[in-house]
């Protein structure tokens, strides 16, 4: 591996990005979604990425989740350079190391809650019986044991997001990445979901959540503010 001082530090960060940019080409106009972002995120942190709409939060999150690759800059995930990875290697990282939670839940509509949660394990090659067992455990941990056979359209928004969280948890990933996870929920349900993240964090998970709401961001222990594709501030909150 690289012999940079960072990787030799006692607590090597899971995420290390340096001078990352992301430019989208829209016709003949370039959109600079990220201009120059550098940050480290370590194990068992609880980070909120905040900023107004269009500031580049989702772009940053997709980058952190290896769903997208930077136009320039360096991204070391657990010390490994993401740039040198193939599509399939990135898919493998997403499968094993990352759990995504989206604003619109992104469940497969025709699959049951259990099948949705099993899906990452399918792509990890886990055998059917073990898969079922692990998916059930994940659903249990989000309090949905009795809804396993329901399809998304038979579940409330909060329940759907719980299924999505169970799906994110099921492979025991290094980080959980949530993009506006409460954006489509009423405030009461949103609060429940935030409590769930809190609990997961306390259980030792690394949680990164993207939001434009101060109320939501306040749950995190570190707030990174983004504006126009740049990090505006990066503070540890006292709590």
């Amino acid at each position: 591996m690289t012999d940079t001082p960072e990787t030799q530090a006692p607590s090597q960060p899971i995420i290390h990005i340096e001078h990352i940019t992301k430019v989208y080409e829209m016709g003949n106009e370039d959109v600079h979604a990220l201009r120059d972002v550098s940050l480290d995120i370590g194990n068992n942190e609880y980070v909120a990425i905040m900023g107004p709409s269009g500031s580049g939060k989702s772009t940053l999150m997709n980058m952190l989740g290896c769903l997208d690759t930077p136009t320039s800059g360096t991204y070391l995930f657990k010390g490994e350079d993401v740039k040198s990875m193939s599509d399939d290697e990135l898919a493998m990282i997403r499968n094993k190391e990352i759990g995504f939670v989206f604003q619109t839940f992104n469940l497969l509509p025709r699959a049951t809650a259990l099948q949705n949660v099993e899906l990452p394990l399918v792509y990890a090659g886990v055998k059917s019986s073990l898969r079922k067992q692990q998916a059930e455990a994940a659903l249990e941990s989000v309090g949905l044991r009795d809804r396993m056979d329901h399809r998304p359209n038979e579940l409330s928004g909060g329940q759907r997001q719980r299924v999505a969280i169970a799906r994110a948890l099921v492979t025991k990933p290094s980080i959980i990445l949530a993009d506006e996870p409460t954006g489509n929920l009423d405030s009461k349900t949103g609060q429940d979901i935030m409590d769930l993240f809190e609990r997961l964090w306390k259980l030792g998970n690394t949680v990164i959540l993207v939001t434009h709401e101060e109320d939501v961001a306040r749950h995190a222990r570190r707030i990174i503010r983004v504006r126009d594709g740049l990090v505006e501030s990066d503070d540890v909150t006292s709590k």
Binding site: G65, L67, D87, D88, A91, M92, R94, N95, K96, F100, N106, L107, L108, L119, P120, Y123, A124, R167, T171
Partner: peptide, 16 residues
């Protein structure tokens, strides 16, 4: 398309 995106996000490879 959306389903493909979801599957890829949670780790489906191209071959899959």
């Amino acid at each position: 398309t959306k389903e493909i995106g979801i599957r890829k996000a949670i780790g489906a490879r191209r071959s899959s």
